[in-house]
Design a protein around this nucleic acid. Structure first.
Lengths: 197, 197
DNA sequence: GTCTATAGTATGATAGAC
DNA sequence: GTCTATCATACTATAGAC
């Protein structure tokens, strides 16, 4: 098999296992078994466990950026685009119920491990944060855009954490309805302010 | 030293270290060093690492219940009592910034480890959940009390997760202001509904 | 590029002296 | 009740054959 194919398989397997079991709890042996290669071969592709983590974070960052880009096409208004973000909770609810948010649970774990890759994992949060802030800016909320972005991000993390703890998908749906209503109100308030000018 | 004294010291040290470093990442050696006893002595008090975890969870449950009881005295109205909960985020902001929420991060970790003690850790969440639901019931929201309780709990988890990721205390204060305003509105709406009857 | 074999270390856990 | 060994295991990581 070509160099890139095996490497890619390793990263894909590690990505999934880090999400489902956590970074520290996942061993080289487990990943090697999942990919179907020997432990020795493993070290030809990655020198250390941290190198795999870096590759996984890079993969996730790239996919996050692609997802954000796709929402620019999918959502016609800023409100619709923000809803694209909110709806991940619904789309991924069965996985979230089991493993929480892939971004939030990783940053939390790396923070506790005092791991040097924490800033890189954090950058994925920042991708969402800045993208959401841009949408709120377009909604006419230039001044409070970042706070609103953090509010929506915070919402998603709270829902993911409790959904995982209580293994409750109905709760996700309930909270998504509420934030959708909130967003609708925020948008309407803003339209009124625009007309008043 | 008496049996209970050493045991208590171990549980206190483990409680703190599990919070700061995570359960799996904390070793017997570390705890023993923190307490100032040998690893061997350790096993006289606890047969397995899971036994320490159980003791830590029990301690946290007990302290949570005591805190909830104290809020019954501290808060004169249901709204004030719910604010007691919200204000933990402010009171513990420096620790939350570094280590997140002790309940949320533990349940998340145990969930990923597929650990048998997860239900016990979860029960701490349930203590908060039921207590908050009781306050919302007293506020006249009997039907939606549990959803409102989950909403406030979810809020706290989202704030803790992002505060830890971004190491941002200002964000905590900002979000607490918002939820305080929200709670005030909810209470006012309810008073109006009461008067209408 | 992939394998087997193995080194080196840290961990959870035990045995037995005091 | 506390200590000093020590065991067994699992893990990260390396060496060297093919």
């Amino acid at each position: 098999m070509s160099d890139k194919q095996t490497r890619s398989k390793i990263v894909e397997a590690a990505d999934q296992m880090f999400y489902e079991q956590g970074f520290e709890h996942t061993s080289f042996t487990q990943i090697a078994q999942a990919v179907g290669i020997s432990k020795g071969n493993f070290y030809y592709h990655f020198k250390t466990k941290n190198d795999i983590l870096d590759a996984v974070i890079q993969l996730r960052s790239q996919r996050t950026q692609e997802m954000l880009d796709s929402w620019e096409v999918e959502g016609k208004t800023a409100e619709e685009r923000i809803l694209c973000f909110v709806k991940i909770l619904i789309r991924n609810q069965s996985k979230i119920k089991l493993f929480g948010c892939p971004v939030g649970t990783l940053t939390t774990e790396l923070s506790k491990l005092n791991h040097r890759a924490q800033p890189e994992a954090n950058a994925i949060f920042t991708l969402f944060r800045n993208w959401l802030a841009e949408q709120f800016t377009q909604l006419g909320r230039k001044k409070g855009a970042d706070s609103l972005a953090m509010h929506v991000l915070s919402f998603s993390q709270g829902v993911a954490t409790l959904a995982q703890a209580f293994e409750d998908e109905t709760f996700i749906q309930n909270e998504v309805s509420q934030i959708t209503q909130w967003l609708s109100n925020e948008t309407a308030l803003n339209e009124q302010a625009k007309e008043a000018n």
